[in-house]
Nucleic acid binder design. Structure first.
Length: 273
DNA sequence: CTTATGGCCTGTCAGC
DNA sequence: TGCTGACAGGCCATAA
């Protein structure tokens, strides 16, 4: 589910809910593991700390306290919501963080592909989740020059390349198809055969699509909600994703689809070369 | 080095 | 109605 726009929205929502500055009173672990074990240190080390800042890196949410960083990944179906004093666990609630201001932050994740791990601050960037990540697509390091150079001699499809978090972070299956359509580049094209002009278009398209998706509150295909329970609205603007056989919004030709990198991929055979 | 595949899980939906 | 199989937005480890 959540790609960069959705994670960005969730992160901003968590801040608005009033998660910052109030001491953590208690942490409840309602099961022993998600994608990785939910370690007891979450219960023992977090109480007494406060969330000083909540940041996003790639598709990870980083809750920063005085001494630790709590790393959260939503996997495919993870969500954070706010609950209050009358909290009763719902199905697939796995972790509850109680704050002194009575706010309860609840992590729910039906498929349990999510991650919740605690790191000492000075050890944050050396862990297996963050150490190999490429640049943020909406920051200055992600340039046409960067994309052009990194793709040279790459034989795999460009779609797989832009979804590879070591090359650039935050782009998942939906936004890869949408950005490639916007750039006029076929997802199957060999990454190494991208021209400089196409690299420029693709960088601009990735950025434009991600910004528009953030502005629309993200995309909801099935599960995604922001931390206030609201659905995203960018799915109404999809040009190709999940529109197999439907007319291209630009030329009218039927949108095509096939599996690439193990995932369904959508494009227009006429608008994309 | 790059590229492809398997596995983690539950829920939903189409087809019978 | 109930069953079965396919599929769902991610990411790591491992194999080729």
């Amino acid at each position: 589910m959540p790609e960069l726009p959705e994670v960005e929205i969730v992160k901003e929502g968590l801040k608005r809910l009033g998660s910052l500055g109030s001491p953590i009173v208690r942490v409840h672990l309602l099961r022993s593991s998600l994608r990785t074990p939910l370690k007891k240190e979450l219960k023992t080390r977090l109480p007494g700390q406060s969330f000083l800042q909540i940041r996003r890196r790639a598709k990870y949410i980083l809750f920063e306290t005085e001494n630790y960083t709590l790393l959260s990944h939503l996997g495919m179906t993870g969500s954070w919501r706010k609950d209050g004093p009358t909290f009763e666990p719902e199905k697939h609630d796995h972790v509850v963080i109680e704050l002194e201001n009575k706010l309860k932050l609840v992590f729910n994740d039906p498929r349990r592909f999510g991650v919740l791990e605690l790191f000492a601050k000075n050890r944050l960037t050396t862990n297996r989740w963050l150490s190999h990540l490429g640049p943020e697509p909406l920051e200055e390091q992600f340039t046409a020059e960067y994309l052009f150079e990194r793709t040279r001699r790459r034989k795999g499809p460009i779609k797989n390349f832009i979804m590879d978090q070591r090359q650039v972070v935050g782009v998942g299956n939906i936004y890869a198809s949408e950005a490639l359509f916007s750039a006029g580049v076929k997802p199957t094209r060999q990454a190494g055969k991208l021209t400089r002009v196409e690299a420029e278009k693709l960088v601009a398209s990735v950025q434009r699509i991600l910004r528009k998706a953030i502005a629309a509150g993200g995309s909801t295909i099935r599960d995604y909600r922001n931390s206030e329970g609201k659905l995203g609205e960018f799915q109404a603007q999809f040009a190709v994703y999940d529109r197999s056989s439907k007319p291209c919004t630009v030329c009218g030709q039927a949108i095509r689809s096939r599996f690439l990198g193990g995932r369904n991929t959508f494009w227009c055979g006429k608008c994309q070369r």
